[in-house]
Design a protein around this nucleic acid. Structure first.
Length: 301
DNA sequence: AGCTACTCCTGGTAGC
DNA sequence: TGCTACCAGGAGTAGC
């Protein structure tokens, strides 16, 4: 790769709260810089990013291997290596992947770097160290438990209805469960529930097919729009000195808007905590479930 | 089965 | 100004 071409990739990272649209954006941006390249060396600055005690094993497994493909599954970035196995990257809260030139300065929060052939380097920077870079000889061992991709054309409203109504849980925690639907996080769940007119405290077993159909449409429309915006960027503690920031945060209807007026009806957005997560709801657009949120368990039969 | 609490982390910020 | 205490949060786990 020429210096000019590499420069085009350098610093082209997106600063995000990474959920499906942000991870999709990251994969699209790094793929041209990593696919087809061979891993020449591993630079580990924070060993736990690879998993406790995994460093030597990972190094033996990946050095000298060629990255055949870069793809997304749920919130995982999957780097498939020729001959089998994959490096799986999870950004969690603050992780970032950036393709830089081999000799570029490193970020103070660099945790793991892959030195690649052709003068490139894939940096995994992560302020809070929650992110992970995992070597999987068999990626299905990690990815196999994930639920359906919401944007998969084969994923229907009836599938969503079955997945939700077949469990007895609050709607929001269930939607955050990656084994039910894969890729949603706090932001897009709040936005989707608002768009569908559903309350996060609603009981999943009471969800009707028409409601599930609304939710299915909302999830898809919001994710597609957010991908088109290259995700959502935050400046609560991120700065955006360079590179592209996502734009979807400008279109939030409820997320991070507690106390502000609903853009649909003008009611004041409420902030509550559901399952230990900050949750944002319009009390008018998303009426509270009429029954108690925690109905008494059925008596023995 | 599903709920809550706790863990991992650190920069930012509210309160003094 | 400078200090401390607390907060955010994806996902895994433990305990009830």
């Amino acid at each position: 790769m020429s210096a000019h071409a590499l420069n085009a990739l350098v610093e082209r990272h997106t600063e995000v709260m990474p959920e499906l649209p942000e991870v999709e954006t990251v994969v699209r941006q790094i793929a041209p810089g990593v696919v087809g390249r061979t891993i020449a060396a591993l630079d580990v600055r924070w060993a736990r990013t690879l998993g406790d005690g995994a460093r030597a094993r990972v190094e033996r497994a990946v050095v000298g291997r060629r990255i055949g493909a870069a793809r997304r599954r749920a919130k995982w970035i999957v780097l498939d290596l020729d001959g089998g196995g994959a490096l799986l990257v999870h950004l969690r809260m603050t992780g970032r992947l950036t393709v830089r030139a081999t000799d570029a300065a490193t970020d103070p929060y660099l945790r793991v770097a892959l030195h690649l052939s052709g003068g490139a380097r894939l940096d995994f920077d992560d302020v809070r160290k929650f992110g992970r870079v995992v070597w999987c000889p068999d990626p299905a061992s990690v990815l196999g438990d994930l639920g359906p991709e919401p944007l998969d054309p084969a994923f229907t409203p009836a599938d969503l209805h079955a997945a939700l109504s077949g469990r007895r849980r609050l709607l929001k925690p269930l939607l955050l469960d990656q084994t039910v639907v894969a890729g949603l996080g706090n932001i897009y769940v709040d936005e989707s529930l608002h768009a569908a007119g559903l309350h996060p405290l609603a009981r999943s077993e009471r969800l009707t097919l028409p409601e599930a159909t609304r939710l299915h449409g909302a999830v898809r429309a919001i994710l597609e729009r957010a991908i088109a915006c290259q995700g959502s960027s935050f400046d609560t503690f991120y700065r955006t000195p360079r590179g592209e920031a996502g734009q979807y945060q400008d279109e939030f209807q409820v997320y991070d808007r507690g106390g502000e007026p609903c853009r649909t009806c003008g009611a004041t957005i409420e902030r509550l905590v559901v399952g230990q997560r900050g949750t944002h709801v319009c009390p008018a657009c998303q009426p509270k479930p009429r029954r108690s949120p925690r109905p008494r368990a059925a008596r023995r039969t």
